[in-house]
């Protein structure tokens, strides 16, 4: 740990030092700079441990406003880097003690970074979500002459409603799977993720697909067109396309597979 009360927040690692744009300010409003070693460039910023040290992070990360601001800023820096270079994003809150440690990190993990860079070269990540309309058609009219009393009629209607909702959900899940399969054919890689938490997604509707795809840059238009066309083909699914994202979901897989919490 540094003695001067600062640490080095690492945003991303790129293969070369060439990306023209000026980068936005970092999570501590600090100037974002680069550290080079082992033929790699780390994009970093110096942050105060009062706010970004271990104890402070434990406290701050429970504050959703703080988390949102920090996550958006981190993403903005990574995105600005990725605009001009193949970029390996680092997970939020990767903090080194000092520049020397960042250099050691680049040297020690050179092969991992290079492998990740090869995988994402010339590609970007796109997110595709399907939101389902599960509105059931009107329940079949059981009629007042149905056997039994009001309770039995209620039960019959309720069962019919539930079973038709069941059918609808099964059908929509199959449609979502076929959307995913179609998109995979246009992508270098792709995967389905758990549905986004409703509180964060801004919707409580059912999300039968939360996919993310690594797509060649020169196929981005084709991919977006395919999403639009799938959206038209599937009346009960509303497809939402986000991106392009830096390849967050396609750079850390091999390396952290043994460390991911279940």
């Amino acid at each position: 740990m540094a003695d001067d009360g600062t640490g080095v927040w690492v945003y991303a690692v790129v293969g070369g030092g060439r990306y023209g744009d000026e980068l936005p300010a970092g999570v501590a409003a600090e100037r974002v700079r680069t550290i080079e070693a082992a033929g790699l460039t780390a994009v970093v910023g110096t942050v105060g441990l009062d706010d970004f040290g271990e104890a402070a992070l434990r406290r701050n990360l429970e504050d959703l406003d703080w988390l949102e601001t920090t996550a958006r800023t981190h993403d903005a820096v990574v995105g600005a880097v990725a605009r001009n270079a193949d970029t390996v994003p680092l997970r939020l809150a990767t903090v080194c003690a000092d520049d020397e440690q960042v250099r050691a990190l680049l040297a020690e993990s050179r092969r991992d970074f290079e492998a990740a860079l090869r995988q994402i070269a010339g590609r970007a990540e796109w997110g595709v979500r399907a939101i389902a309309d599960t509105t059931a058609p009107p329940a079949p009219d059981v009629g007042t002459d149905a056997p039994g009393g009001a309770g039995a009629r209620y039960l019959a209607r309720r069962r019919a409603e539930l079973s038709s909702r069941d059918d609808i959900e099964r059908a929509l899940a199959a449609e979502a799977e076929s959307v995913h399969t179609t998109l995979l054919r246009l992508a270098a890689m792709g995967r389905r993720q758990s549905p986004t938490a409703p509180a964060l997604a801004g919707t409580r509707e059912w999300m039968p697909l939360n996919g993310t795809y690594l797509v060649d840059r020169d196929r981005a238009r084709e991919f977006a067109d395919a999403v639009a066309s799938l959206d038209r083909d599937h009346e009960r699914l509303r497809l939402e396309l986000t991106g392009p994202w830096p390849p967050y979901s396609f750079t850390g897989i091999e390396r952290d597979s043994g460390r991911e919490s279940p």
């Binding site: 680092l90 003690a97 850390g252």
Partner: peptide, 18 residues
Amino acid sequence: RVLDKGLVIAGDIQINLL
């Protein structure tokens, strides 16, 4: 993306404070 993904630095050199 920024929490669940991104390269996680691990290994012998313990560079993370967290």
